[in-house]
Design a protein around this nucleic acid. Sequence first.
DNA 1: AAGCCTCTCAACCGCGAAGTA
DNA 2: TTACTTCGCGGTTGAGAGGCT
Length: 298
Amino acid sequence: MGRSPCCSKEGLNRGAWTALEDKILTSYIKAHGEGKWRNLPKRAGLKRCGKSCRLRWLNYLRPDIKRGNISVDEEELIVRLHKLLGNRWSLIAGRLPGRTDNEIKNYWNTTLGKKLAKADRSSSSPPSSKDINHPSFKSRSKRPVSKLSCSLSAKATRPQVTRYKPLECTKVLASAGSSLPNKNQSLYSITPEYSPFQANYCPNGSASELGQDSENPRTHHVHCGTHDDHLQENCVGDFGLINFGYGNEFNTANIMCADQPLIVEQEMLENWTSVCVEEKDTLDLDSLAYLLNSEEWP
DNA sequence: AAGCCTCTCAACCGCGAAGTA
DNA sequence: TTACTTCGCGGTTGAGAGGCT
């Protein structure tokens, strides 16, 4: 495609995958599991580069893949998530069970993007360069934090998004009066002193990590990074950070409010936690849609 | 019927983060 | 701590299908 290959591709097949290659890759992964993509082609006897195998598996061969027929609900969810997350397709895909980032990206570029651009034009408001959906918004070098043992809040200095390296989650912080997770629940924190709304999910958290403030028994702490980290690195108030556990995958979403601080009432927070947190630490599509569709959501 | 244009989407690419020695 | 390797992501490309003239 006019670019120099990222690695030696001599003798490697390129282009569309054949049924036989698919079969070989599928059975190899079923037998040996995912990962070690670099060595996989050799061991499986495929004349493909590891990247290509990974892509093929993740986007088309995985058994839980749902393809085509994107429903209206899913479409609406994509739009809303894109509004919040920008072109972070993997994060968006993480909220849509069975959908892949590539599929959503393609769908956006071919269908939704145009649809919305058309609607935008008809509403006669010119796109702002501050808009995270604007082409000038490049999140490429500021990738989202995913699969973290604990995620950090990030700052949003529009139009750019800055995300931080994960730091160890050592404490649980919650405002007095907020609903606290019980021992079977994941740890969510509410740290109003840093931002209007911030909820961090620590998937490996346990009840023992729920430390109560000795001075204020109603105050719990989640500490991802130091207070200084927050103070120095956070332009607090611009957004909330929400992690939704989805299935076995730990997904992180830096939910940004593009134009205004995300203010979350205590009641809404409690509603949200009751909707989104209770069941097996996961959030299903309906719950997320509910959250996104809620009045308070920007 | 043929040629051109547009659209879709699978696949490739480079880059940065994460992991490892 | 540094250097190197591997992985995962978003942007981009190009082949093929379908529509239009």
